[in-house]
Simulated scan of single mutants.
Amino acid sequence: MSHLELVGIDLAYGTHRVVRGLSLRLEKGRIGCLLGPSGCGKTTVLRSIAGFERVLGGEIRLDGVVVSRKDHHLPPERRRIGMVFQDYALFPHLTIAGNIAFGLRGDSTDTRSSRVDELLDLVGLAGQGEKFPHEMSGGQQQRVALARALAPRPSLLLLDEPFSNLDVELRERLSYEVRDIIKATQTTAILVTHDQHEAFAVADEIGIVHQGRIQQWDTPYNLYHRPANRFVADFIGQGVFLPGMVLNDREVQVELGTLNSAVPVECGIGCGGCSRNCSVDVLLRPDDIVHDDASPLKAEVAHKAFRGADILYTLKLASGARVLSLVPSHHNHAIGERIGIRLDVDHVVTFHEDDTDEAATPALVQISR
């Protein structure tokens, strides 16, 4: 039995339907994430799980018990759900210890004090319970908010864009810390974010949300290497689509070479294997194109983005098509220079050129060595 299950839920604001038939399952102790652009419905889904929004259709279940459906709505305070908000929502007039203990008002003084000390130690703020929120940094305040949400030992923890107010470097470091803290308490959690780096750092499973639907619920690895449709392929990571031609049920020809498929080439829902001369689009990531001075295959540097350890090159092929290549930064080439490249592809995804976002099923192909 799943710890959290959403079964075909519909949500709306007035007459505007923002979520349509959305479903997901999350097992106990796992961290899930709803990832997508602004306005896609992900925060509305989180609010419905918390009990702040009523569903128009479908069901939300916690440990097999229905907490939301059209004719039944368990109020938020009875769901045993903790929540960490984007703006931390700490009480400025309470100490750090007082904030963490806020949800423990029914416990004895000794029990509250012991739990607060335990959580302060867990989030790396031992001995700082008498400080006030304004005396803490943004990262420290976020850890206090997390400790407060965990204090009552919730059945489920929800995190709504918890790192958006922090600078990039702190956000990356804190995301790993938050994952470790949640895992240490064996708490089931759902994170909402528009930042895929946060999602990859924190979550075990990620749902890509687009236009009120989950396009793919999967591991970070599979989302990157096995996207279910064009939207997921475009949203996760970076890459370009290169035109290809199916030679037979195992080979696809692109401008850079012939791709050898480990399974019969499929490029759309209901496709039982593509026929010869079927046109497809092949997804190539920056790590699929390797800089190699000895390679006879050349491409022109059209653009470069220095990233410290790496440079992301945009390379123009003979046809005028462009691909991306991530290269160690000591290979510093000028715009207009022609450099050697070769393919090093473990996963290539193909889509039929006419497929829409929701209609495309990927085929994994592997390049001949």
Rank of each mutant, 00 (worst) to 15 (best):
P133F: 06
P133T: 09
P133I: 10
P133K: 10
H134Q: 15
H134L: 14
M136N: 08
S137W: 12
G138L: 13
Q141L: 05
V144C: 11
V144E: 12
V144L: 02
A145S: 13
A147E: 11
R148W: 05
A149M: 02
L150C: 03
A151F: 04
A151D: 12
R153N: 12
P154A: 08
S155R: 15
L156A: 01
L158P: 00
L159M: 15
L159S: 00
D160C: 06
F163L: 14
F163W: 06
F163C: 09
F163I: 05
S164C: 07
S164I: 12
L166K: 07
D167S: 12
E169F: 03
L170M: 14
R171Y: 05
R171M: 04
E172K: 15
R173V: 00
S175F: 06
S175Q: 07
Y176H: 14
V178H: 03
D180F: 02
I182Y: 05
A184F: 10
T185N: 02
Q186F: 04
T187V: 09
T188E: 09
T188R: 02
I190M: 06
V192Y: 03
H194D: 01
H194M: 03
Q196P: 06
E198D: 13
E198Y: 00
A199G: 05
A199V: 08
A199S: 07
D204T: 04
D204F: 00
E205S: 06
I206K: 11
I206A: 09
H210S: 10
H210C: 08
G212L: 01
R213A: 09
R213I: 05
W217I: 07
D218K: 07
T219P: 05
Y221Q: 13
Y221I: 08
H225R: 13
P227F: 10
R230G: 15
F231T: 01
V232C: 08
D234S: 06
D234P: 00
D234W: 14
F235M: 04
I236G: 08
G237K: 11
G239I: 05
F241V: 05
F241R: 15
P243A: 02
G244S: 01
G244W: 08
M245D: 06
V246A: 08
V246C: 03
V246D: 03
D249G: 00
D249L: 06
R250G: 00
V252D: 04
Q253Y: 02
E255I: 02
L256G: 09
G257C: 14
L259Q: 09
N260A: 12
S261E: 01
